[in-house]
């Protein structure tokens, strides 16, 4: 997705030869722009590396965190002849790629179909793919299924909103004061790795099987994801931009709005995207274990009732829901950050 043509650097073969002076000038420009370019590249790395779904992940984009290796940024740390190192994604949405991907999916489904049919595993415990998919399609026509999906998404959305708002507000308050940042650092670092599922018994005691207990888990897990990102985003503000705004007489609120917020927005969006995946996992987990109504509770009911086809169908449904949420969040991120250079270069490609 990285743009090949606008990348500074010598042109690939096939261009008309230039005069020596032109070439020197170009190379100089390229060298001096390389550092800034790499920085842009680094920002994208953050979004890339942390895009894997995870639960209470430590995803701090801290400056010392290893995200690109030396080998990737060129052995000297400067741009090498192939340009500043980064994932060089060629425009790869070609037909052959899509076909291969489809072939992979079909291959998996075929394996899943054949393995139970020839009796490698008990057909009762692992119904062939065709039956599970058939069950999924039947589900699409059932009102109960859509109610369960709605319940799941309801808990997901509410939890996300609460966590994101809380974390953003607190993050901006803590992040804009050096004292508060130092003061809260140890507490945040201690509470962050506490696994959210440790709270399940507490949630059951306090709220029973109501939606509040899944909300509690979702908010706890997502809150740290977003908070950490906001803190780092706020800390990343360019001091020259900040001083410029101050000399131009912008008040604290205006500085927050026009300098800090745009800087922190990419970080917030990364946090939100990660939190979206985490929130789905916890919503389903809470339903599965506590029994809050939703897809998870349906799965556990199908399993204890021995209705294994329906169980596989529901598992497929949660997977599809996860893929859908990933896609939508990535789209939203691209829309919200359309002004940001990391997205702009992608669009140009």
């Amino acid at each position: 997705m990285t743009d090949e043509s606008s990348r500074p650097g010598p042109d690939p073969r096939g261009k008309a030869p230039r005069t020596r002076e032109e070439e020197v000038h170009r190379l100089h420009r390229w060298e001096s722009s390389a550092a800034a370019d790499r920085r842009g590249g680094d920002l994208r790395r953050h979004t890339d590396v942390s895009s894997s779904a995870a639960l209470d992940i430590a995803t701090r984009p801290d400056p010392a965190a290893p995200l690109t290796s030396i080998a990737q940024s060129g052995a000297t740390g400067r741009a090498t002849t192939s340009g500043p190192g980064r994932a060089r994604r060629r425009p790869r949405r070609g037909w052959d790629t899509k076909l291969l991907g489809a072939a992979g999916v079909v291959g998996l489904l075929l394996t899943w179909e054949i393995v139970p049919r020839i009796g490698l595993v008990n057909e009762r415990f692992m119904p062939p793919a065709s039956e599970a998919i058939g069950g999924l399609i039947t589900n699409f026509g059932l009102a109960d299924f859509w109610v369960a999906v709605f319940d799941t998404m309801h808990a997901w959305a509410l939890g996300m909103i609460i966590a994101v708002v809380l974390a953003t507000v607190l993050g901006f308050i803590i992040g804009s004061s050096t004292f508060l940042r130092r003061f809260t650092n140890s507490t945040i670092e201690f509470l962050r790795p506490v696994p959210s599922v440790a709270l399940i018994p507490l949630a059951v005691l306090l709220f029973g099987v109501g939606i509040e207990s899944s909300l509690m888990l979702i908010v706890y897990a997502c809150f740290w994801q977003v908070l950490i990102q906001v803190l780092y985003g706020v800390a990343d503000v360019d001091s020259v931009a900040m001083n410029t705004a101050r000399s131009y007489g912008l008040g604290p609120m205006a500085r927050m709005r026009y300098v800090t917020f745009p800087t922190a927005l990419p970080y917030i969006m990364t946090g939100v995207r990660l939190a979206a995946a985490v929130a789905l996992i916890l919503a389903v987990t809470a339903q599965l274990i506590i029994g809050t109504p939703g897809l998870g509770a349906e799965i556990s009911r199908a399993q204890s009732g021995g209705n294994y086809v329906s169980m596989y169908a529901l598992v497929l449904a949660t997977g599809l829901l996860g893929v859908l949420i990933n896609l939508v969040m990535r789209m939203i991120e691209r829309k919200v950050l359309s002004w940001h250079s990391s997205v702009r270069t992608e669009v140009a490609a």
């Binding site: 991907g101 992979g104 996992i281 599965l288 399993q303 598992v315 997977g319 996860g322 893929v323």
Partner: peptide
């Protein structure tokens, strides 16, 4: 590269399944 193209959509799907829903499945298998 071909292996990546072959497996990418499948991996994407498996990653999106909340791992906890696999517990009932694995309990059976």
């Amino acid at each position: 590269r071909w292996l990546r193209a072959l497996l990418e959509p499948t991996l994407e799907f498996f990653r999106a399944i909340p791992p906890t829903v696999l517990i009932p499945v694995l309990m059976l298998l």
